[in-house]
Design a protein around this nucleic acid. Structure first.
Length: 260
DNA sequence: ATGGTAGCAGAGCTA
């Protein structure tokens, strides 16, 4: 089975690309971030026609996440437990057989030391707590999304230029390491120990053309799923497209035994 | 060079 995560940066704008890509790549489960759509405007019919069911929780202008799947999701969860009811729409979870799937849009953080940076670290603490409890109930756990954190210097095109900046700062990396320490493994790095690859390139300054990117989108898998991981790669074609998202999809090929 | 581009919304914020 194929599992993918993609920050679409407006599902309204990217829907034609998404539908083309679903038909081509045939993923089984897809986590989307930054849909920027209220639920009433979610393109449920178009996705159903393409063979995908959808869980979604959206808001206007900012945030919004969706979880697409060929098979129906079980026990959907539309918000991160422990956060206030009026929270930003950044979290979805559901079960597919034995597999517990989490899709997250981690706050960007704006700038180190800002209020948004503090919000990011606070959100990550609650996120970690959720994952810790989820792992106890559902040991086959897959966590995907836009984490807005580059785990190590190999994941940064110019670590010296980025030193101390948001997305790579020590506190953010420690928060991600704390999640990894629960027993959640970075599937891309596990399968490609020395490969440099990016999932996001700034729209500004010809970032993609110059390959000035970061690897900030991730798929984490719990230890019982490691043996089922076959391959993990970045879908660069969608970043090359006309009017692209600033992120490219990340795909994980997982043995079907993961569902059992 | 504290810029640059994209999306939403219709000016300024967020990324």
């Amino acid at each position: 089975m194929l599992i993918a995560t993609w920050n679409v940066n407006s599902l309204r704008v990217r829907l034609p690309q998404l539908l083309d890509w679903l038909a081509k790549a045939q993923p089984d489960i897809v986590g989307l971030q930054e849909t920027k759509l209220v639920d009433e405007e979610f393109p449920q019919a178009e996705l159903a026609a393409a063979g995908y069911r959808a869980l979604f929780t959206g808001q206007r202008t900012y945030n919004g996440v969706a979880l697409l799947s060929r098979q129906p999701a079980q026990e959907p969860l539309l918000a991160l437990p422990g956060r206030p009811a009026d929270e930003q729409k950044r979290f979805l979870a559901a079960n597919f057989g034995a597999l517990h799937v989490v899709n997250a849009y981690v706050p960007n953080g704006s700038a180190v030391g800002s209020d948004k940076y503090a919000y990011k670290l606070d959100w990550l603490a609650d996120f970690r707590h959720y994952l810790e409890t989820a792992l106890q109930r559902r040991p086959k756990l897959l966590v995907m999304g836009d984490f807005n954190i580059a785990p190590a210097d190999i994941d940064v095109h110019d670590p010296a230029a980025w030193e101390g900046q948001v997305l790579i700062s020590p506190a953010e990396r420690q928060a991600l390491a704390g999640i990894a320490a629960l027993g959640l493994h970075d599937a891309f790095r596990y399968l490609n120990p020395d490969l440099q690859a990016f999932t996001w390139w700034d729209y500004r300054g010809g970032g993609f053309r110059r390959n000035h990117g970061l690897r900030i989108d991730h798929i984490l898998v719990s230890t019982p799923l490691l043996a089922a991981c076959r391959s993990c790669r970045v879908e660069l074609e969608l970043r090359r497209a006309e009017r692209p998202s600033d992120h490219a999809p990340l795909l994980l090929e997982l043995d079907d035994s993961a569902l059992a």
